[in-house]
């Protein structure tokens, strides 16, 4: 790829490039839905952390449609799908000794989730 001039490079970085994909894709879930993170163990790239696999959470928010890193990191297509913020209780993931109120949120693609 040819070098960018200083002006173009700075303008590109200052503008950014959203990873959102402007395409209509049906969402598999909506806010409030109970979900379980899939137990997948791909040898390639994924953005599904191990600590949350197999755990139950709740869809907090639908962030819209993005490309799937598991495909894009390997020269595949965008595989556009919805990304959600999913809420998990600390106890669901770390056990009974975790503080009862605490929780965390993980951003997850449709392909990472099943209905609970």
């Amino acid at each position: 790829m040819p070098a960018l001039t200083a002006e173009t490079a700075v303008a590109t970085l200052m503008a950014g490039a959203s990873a959102r994909i402007d395409v209509e894709v049906a969402a598999k879930f909506k806010a409030g839905d109970a979900v379980v993170a899939r137990n997948i163990n791909p040898a390639g790239h994924t953005r599904l952390p191990r600590y949350v696999r197999g755990k139950r959470g709740t869809i907090d928010k639908d962030h819209g449609v993005f490309g799937l890193p598991d495909s894009m990191a390997h020269g595949g297509g965008d595989a556009p799908q919805h990304v959600y913020s999913v809420r998990f209780s600390a106890r669901e993931v770390w056990g009974a000794e975790a503080p009862p109120r605490d929780c965390f949120y993980v951003d997850m693609w449709d392909d990472y989730l099943d209905p609970a």
Binding site: M1, P2, H45
Partner: peptide, 20 residues
Amino acid sequence: MLATFANGSFKGDEFRHAIE
């Protein structure tokens, strides 16, 4: 890194995976 990313030499996910 940013100059080669900004000129489209690779995708962000490819870069992350190469670190992994």
